[in-house]
Computed example of a mutant assay.
Amino acid sequence: MSGKSFQGLKQQAESAAKDAANALGQATQDAVNQVADASQKAIDQACKTAQDGVEKATGQAAEAMSGLGKKCGFKK
């Protein structure tokens, strides 16, 4: 094999390796982005659920205190 053809094969192999590394890097970044997006959606949903629960509990507590006040004669 001549030196020129060997050099050409070497360059092709290096180029293919760089392309593969770039493709792997992009695929990894895409996967990270998808995980981040899914995580953010899960966190947002958990926060909304917690907020809804707090609001419901606050409303129930207010009703209970109002009822207690009426029973004790503080409110009519």
Results as ranks from 00 to 15, higher is better:
10 K>S: 12
8 G>S: 10
33 N>E: 12
62 A>P: 00
50 A>V: 08
39 S>H: 00
9 L>D: 10
51 Q>F: 12
36 A>I: 11
21 A>L: 07
36 A>W: 02
57 A>S: 04
58 T>P: 00
49 T>P: 00
23 A>H: 11
75 K>M: 13
49 T>G: 03
41 K>H: 05
21 A>P: 00
28 T>H: 11
14 E>A: 15
26 Q>S: 10
62 A>G: 01
11 Q>L: 12
47 C>P: 01
33 N>T: 07
52 D>C: 03
53 G>R: 06
63 E>C: 01
38 A>N: 01
69 G>L: 09
13 A>E: 14
11 Q>A: 14
61 A>E: 08
20 A>C: 07
42 A>P: 01
70 K>H: 15
58 T>D: 07
49 T>S: 09
13 A>P: 01
19 D>C: 06
18 K>Q: 14
40 Q>F: 03
14 E>T: 10
60 Q>V: 02
32 V>I: 10
73 G>A: 13
71 K>A: 15
44 D>H: 03
17 A>T: 07
26 Q>E: 15
50 A>R: 10
31 A>P: 00
62 A>D: 04
33 N>H: 02
64 A>E: 09
24 L>I: 03
16 A>R: 07
45 Q>E: 15
12 Q>M: 03
52 D>E: 14
29 Q>C: 07
16 A>P: 03
16 A>Q: 14
5 S>F: 09
19 D>A: 15
48 K>Q: 15
4 K>D: 15
38 A>F: 00
